[in-house]
Design a protein around this nucleic acid. Structure first.
Lengths: 233, 233
DNA sequence: GTGCCAAGAATGGCATACCATTTTGGTCCT
DNA sequence: AGGACCAAAATGGTATGCCATTCTTGGCAC
């Protein structure tokens, strides 16, 4: 069975992986695999045999191999010589380490955002924040999660530092699975919400040190819990 | 001819790219190209045509292409559809941005190192520091540069955070060229040396905040100069 | 019955062939 | 003489085939 045929019997699984339809095939394959890895449709440790995947995706092995190499350098899969590619296992240690770096990156981004963002940008951030608060009050975890992600990403985006943004995007992807699962069973939801209030206040008052500290603290608290208990997924 | 004939007259350009001789070809090619790019043996903007490079390195296009994809995700080359790979241009903006992220990463590393490193580790750092100071007094820029790099890398390594180490390694590579050229014409050499003294003092007294701040300040000062003036290389 | 070994099947690594797109240089028209 | 257009060559993109290594499994010996 084509492993993700959403509807038709013979449809190609890579439908929406097309970003601007004349993108290279390897990008499509890479995007497709990346998407499914971070969305946890592939279990960690699962093998990704070239030939079978190639026929399922209806591409040849060459672009698939190149896509796998890319994902390997991104840390989403690991390739062993003559043993092929498997979806990267994320150990609790990995998560802790990457989450720590993520918090450092977002701290730096918050500082820059305080200095660089326009008042309109901050206002939009506030708007998203209140939207998120509404979701919190309605106990709508799904939308809360989406808006939370959106806010964090936007703070980083507003930093204006492309290198920082790219590295954050990459790291964030690697933690997406855990981030999502974490959100589902976070008992300290109210605390997280309060921390977001503090972050927004600091951003609004344009206090780089404070904003950075609050954000880093927030991420530290949010993550360490789930990195310490072993069975994340 | 096996492309790694170490002695024969028509030896192939990739001699020392071997890390543990039974590594995959693409790794060798990637290491080789990476080395030559960061060492500035390839000019930024220079095209890297697959076929000619392949015959020069005596490999086929397949592993070469995979290596280029890897270098592209690392940011060392850029690949345009149907136009091939060129050595990435490093704009002053790029340098500033990446240097900023580097300083943030090293700041975080210094904090962790204060907490995690053993006394012996710190002592070894001190030893390297004094070696470097000796080079400074002898005006030996070459050795100073090497030891400086070594110290920075070791501080990061001692953090114990693998994710942080990897990201730092990658960024550091991308800035190697500029770092090297910067060292050659740095007039504020004495200042840099003093800052290193301060960093070491903070590490020795195990003051994370202070060590991080000193290191970030040091990097900020060292780099901004060369990022603002346009003609780096 | 269990453990080891060998042969074959499976899988990844590399090379090459073919196709699509882009670049180029030359010619013809204005 | 200059520019536009077309063809041919160059170059990247994809597919496929062959070889080396690894995994699997069936049989034999203990």
């Amino acid at each position: 069975m084509p492993f993700l045929a959403l509807d038709s019997g013979v449809s190609n699984p890579m439908e929406e992986a097309v970003q601007s339809s004349h993108a290279g095939l390897v990008e499509k394959v890479a995007n497709y695999l990346r998407e499914h890895i971070v969305m946890d449709h592939f279990q960690p440790g699962q093998r990704l045999p070239e030939r079978t995947l190639a026929v399922e995706l209806q591409v040849s092995r060459t672009p698939l191999r190149e896509a796998l190499k890319i994902l390997a350098t991104e840390g989403l899969v690991v390739i062993s010589p003559h043993r092929g590619a498997v979806v990267a296992e994320v150990s609790p240690t990995d998560i802790k380490e990457k989450a720590y770096v993520l918090s450092v990156l977002e701290q730096a981004a918050a500082e820059l955002t305080c200095l660089n963002a326009s008042d309109d940008d901050i206002a939009e951030l506030q708007a998203l924040h209140y939207e998120m608060k509404a979701c919190f009050l309605r106990r709508d975890r799904q939308s809360y999660f989406r808006l939370n992600q959106e806010i964090h990403n936007r703070i980083v985006a507003l930093s204006g530092n492309t290198a920082l943004i790219d590295m954050h995007t990459n790291l964030s992807r690697q933690l997406y699975r855990v981030r999502y699962l974490s959100n589902q069973k976070n008992e300290k939801w109210a605390t997280a919400m309060e921390e977001h209030e503090a972050i927004m206040a600091a951003l609004e008052s344009r206090d780089p040190e404070q904003a950075g500290r609050e954000l880093r603290n927030h991420l530290g608290k949010t993550w360490i819990k789930y990195a310490n208990g072993e069975p994340i997924a």
